[in-house]
């Protein structure tokens, strides 16, 4: 018995170490590349020990990639997506669990079905919407051919509404903040809260909003923190959508910015600078994970009783 559990332990440890190596090695390799001067970084095979050019490369990457502005944009976008997703999903879950209204289950299933429609799938219509938020309204007006006013001379004046959100923080975040997953998580959590708690609050004189604010929200703290970590990383890593809707350099995000540090065939193959840029962009999500990981684990492992 002892022997068997020992082999088991050794095997699991070996597997874990291998896993860490497989995941960790590319990151280490990127780090090494970021510390080397150009000659060493392009030699084949590349050395495995760090060099002393880290600060040079970082500075180059920062300047050439305009990373300061882009990191700022990324942070705004990731925070916007995180806050927006949590706010919308917790309110939707609250409505679905605590209110009885016609079409409640339908609403829930519609939200649930959107799980199958990530940005990549709905990117064309979403882009069309970003060009003009009122597209559906305009279409509807066209179909119904609603004349807004008829001129006495017989001209029909039709109306088109126009609101373009390309190249704006709004455009970067808004189309991404609906979240079926988060709504579902909050719903499941609310369902575990005994009905009597809501009834006690009702008798205490708390209206629905007060109950939400004073009781549900504080009780959801760990869940919110856990979700915030996942959603921040999700928001930070967005690539396709920002690529599509930002053309203005001022609005570009860091994940897109580092692709512009990648050497093109005609340039010197400055992989050391590209890797330094990648490392910089890696830092904010790492900070968020490290800061919130205690909550993250708590939120996933134990539901507050």
């Amino acid at each position: 018995m002892v022997d068997r559990s020992r082999t088991l332990r050794i095997t699991t440890h070996v597997l874990l170490v291998l896993g860490v190596l497989v995941i960790g090695f590319p990151i280490y390799y990127a780090f090494v590349a970021a510390t080397l001067p150009l000659e060493l970084a392009t030699r084949v095979p590349m050395p495995l020990v760090p060099g002393d050019h880290l600060m040079d490369n970082v500075e180059q990457a920062w300047r050439r990639g305009d990373l300061g502005l882009q990191l700022f944009n990324s942070i705004v976008m990731a925070l916007g997506i995180t806050a927006g997703k949590i706010a919308i999903s917790i309110i939707s879950a609250f409505a679905i669990v605590y209110f009885r209204f016609p079409g409640r289950m339908l609403a829930f299933w519609i939200i649930f079905v959107t799980l199958m429609l990530p940005v990549e799938v709905r990117i064309v219509p979403t882009y069309e919407m970003a060009v003009n938020v009122f597209t559906p309204v305009n279409r509807l007006l066209e179909v119904l051919s609603v004349p807004v006013a008829i001129d006495p001379l017989g001209y029909t004046i039709s109306m088109r509404l126009q609101w373009n959100i390309l190249d704006s923080y709004f455009g970067l975040t808004l189309p991404l903040i609906a979240s079926a997953t988060a709504t579902f998580l909050f719903r499941q959590f609310f369902l575990t809260i005994p009905d009597q708690l809501a009834e006690a609050a009702k008798i205490d004189g708390a209206g629905p909003l007060r109950f939400f604010w004073d009781v549900l929200l504080p009780m959801s703290r760990t869940n919110i923190a856990a979700l915030a970590v996942i959603l921040f990383v999700y928001g930070w890593n967005q690539y396709l959508w920002p690529l599509l809707i930002t053309t203005d350099r001022e609005m570009m995000t860091a994940v897109i910015g580092i692709t512009r540090l990648m050497p093109s065939p005609d340039d010197a193959p400055e992989w050391n600078v590209a890797m330094a840029g990648a490392l910089i962009v890696l830092i904010p999500p790492v900070i968020v994970v490290v800061l919130l990981q205690r909550w993250f684990v708590k939120g996933l492992v134990e539901e507050e009783k």
Partner: peptide
């Protein structure tokens, strides 16, 4: 019966 105290 289940007390229904506000846990936080």
């Amino acid at each position: 019966q289940n007390y229904a105290l506000y846990p936080h």
